[in-house]
């Protein structure tokens, strides 16, 4: 266990360091001068220079990187050029929308996808299996933003059950907030859930063919008991790694789906910030996204070790 955690931590730290350098370097390559964008094309050269000095843009790159990263570690992501507020505050506001959305979507996809996959594997070749295969094929092929539009068309425009977009803010009450997130979460969850169901089904079918399942049956366990007590835990291991890989997809997906539903989340923030050359915001948000992906990978590795004694206690 110590070994798994230690290896995971080392790789997490290395990933974060390399990623921060890459993100910072990418920002330097971006054409366009933030000071110029803020002041407009008619700005006087001396005001421009003054603003650049104020923003710290006249410092060498290494110094700016160190300043940025040490601030980042202290929770200070700098000041947004365009919004005039601390980036941390801005991100915090947006995260209050994006994070519940991602969690809701992940929970929905797992809650529906995993049982469907298990059910199909247990009834392999039967009607349930074929139905699950058909619908997961379809679910994987549907772009989430199109699904989002169809959901709006049906549930918001035609039936008027749920709001078509926008976010009332959590001040308006948890119920109103969750209502605004239901459709986007479903749109994000359907393709991911379909993938999870397929991976779960295949992994469980493969595991059911393993010798130790036959051994369990030879001890007198019924088919269902052997599946529940022996196959399932073994089958979940590849599913975990797929869930880890899905997380970046989910984040990318939120950027677009937030646009469809006019949600004030991180995705919209990053699109606006790029357009306005608000580099300090872009840098902060991208770094945050990459860090969350790395953290999820770390968590997945720990989960592996918890499930699998071969990683916990190598012989």
């Amino acid at each position: 266990m110590i070994r798994a955690v230690a290896l995971g931590l080392v790789s997490l730290v290395v990933t974060l360091i390399v990623a921060s350098v890459l993100v910072f370097a990418a920002m330097q390559v971006l054409p366009g001068d933030p000071a110029q964008v803020m002041l407009g094309v008619n700005a006087q050269p001396d005001t421009l220079a003054a603003l650049r000095a104020e923003l710290g843009l006249d410092q060498p790159a290494v110094a700016r990187y160190l300043a940025w990263i040490s601030g980042f570690l202290a929770g200070d992501l700098g000041m947004s050029h365009t919004y005039g507020v601390p980036v941390a505050e801005l991100v915090g506001e947006r995260l209050a929308v994006s994070l519940p959305l991602a969690v809701l979507a992940l929970a929905l996809s797992a809650a529906v996808g995993l049982p469907l996959g298990m059910w199909a594997a247990a009834r392999r070749g039967g009607f349930v299996d074929r139905a699950v295969l058909f619908f997961t094929q379809l679910g994987i092929a549907v772009p989430n933003f199109w699904l989002a539009m169809l959901l709006v068309l049906v549930f918001a425009v035609t039936w008027r059950w749920l709001p078509p977009g926008g976010f009332p803010g959590w001040e308006a009450g948890a119920g109103a907030g969750v209502r605004a997130l239901v459709l986007p979460a479903v749109a994000l969850a359907v393709p991911q859930g379909a993938i999870l169901a397929q991976v779960m089904r295949q992994s469980l079918i493969d595991t059911l063919h393993q010798d130790f399942v036959r051994t369990a049956r030879a001890k007198g366990l019924t088919r269902g008991e052997a599946l529940r007590r022996h196959a399932l835990r073994n089958a979940i291991i590849p599913v975990l790694s797929v869930m880890g890989l899905q997380f970046p997809f989910l984040l990318a997906g939120t950027i677009i789906v937030e646009n469809v539903f006019f949600l004030p989340g991180l995705g919209r923030l990053i699109l606006q910030a790029v357009n306005q050359r608000d580099l300090i915001v872009v840098q902060g948000v991208v770094m945050l996204l990459v860090a969350s992906v790395a953290a999820v990978n770390f968590a997945v590795n720990i989960a592996y070790a918890l499930v699998d004694p071969r990683l916990r206690r190598p012989a």
Binding site: L289, V290, V293
Partner: peptide, 22 residues
């Protein structure tokens, strides 16, 4: 292998957005 895994941490959409800018 580590380097290629590392690319996974960057959502493709972000890469595309940054590429458009350059």
């Amino acid at each position: 292998l580590r380097a290629s895994d590392f690319l996974f941490a960057f959502p493709a959409l972000l890469v595309a957005i940054l590429l458009r800018e350059t």
